[in-house]
Amino acid sequence: MQYAKPTTAAEAARLLSAASGVTRVLAGGTDVLVQLKAGMVEPDLIVDIKHIPGIRTLQAEAGGFRIGAAVSGAELGEHAALCAAWPGVTEGAQLIGSKQVQGRCSMVGNLCNASPAGDAVPGLVAANATVRVEGPNGTRDVAVHAIPASPGKTTLQKGEIITSIFLPARAPRSSDAYLRFIPRSEMDIAVASAGVNLTLDAAGTITAARVALGAVAPTVLLVDACAKAIIGTKLDATALAALEKAASAACKPIDDKRGTIEFRTKVAGVLARRAAVIAYGRAGGKL
């Protein structure tokens, strides 16, 4: 196995493109090293991207935020402005693993691991975040939602890496929330999850909404029917019931060791409803 630490994205892309065997991109390593330990993968090349300029910085851009691909969960949680603007995104990212894992794990890593249960992803999809992809054919910006292809697989091409995430500027009276269900209070993989991102008008009516569900389908679902159920409402009981129903209806989960189809379907609806209530309150709405 070879270990490389390129100092530009172009160099990283070159290394990955040229590699003939199995490659892994290393940011926080909290997934890659688990795969190594389990013998799931024996890479021929590991490309450590943390020495690429900007990859570990978090800065304001165009009224929003550009977050380097290797910014850790702990660093996100310490960024007051980001947490104020995108509390749902940051609380999702901070639910990945333990406080120890938070010292290293990144949202991009969570996204590229391509698990339908990744805690950072529903919040980013609900936020309509984009990622900057750099590769042999240059640079492109892609919606987060378009990155996961299936469990463990992304739509990235050979040689491509994600260098940053962009969270757009916020309209007034906007906020978001993320909830997941796990059997313990910490240290678990989501059995079902929901990210809700809302914008209200001055009267408290929802004018825009995005609802994303995790761990209930092969990839994170962006559920338009959930958004439709609450747009134009003040999140009254009827709207919440419709939201819950739409969320459960959208689920296409599996039975596995972590949960049943029945459980995931029901709980995803509950979480969507509860997350919507939190996001609505954060956006200034009063129930």
């Binding site: 059997p183 313990r184 209070s185 910490e186 240290m187 678990d188 993989i189 060791k257 972590r258």
Partner: peptide, 27 residues
Amino acid sequence: NEEYIYGADGRLQNAGFLDYRVPVASD
């Protein structure tokens, strides 16, 4: 929460602390 989970193939599905859930401090 703690349990040994076997698949239909008779293989243990949760041979790790992630899915064999011992209580953590916050529980």
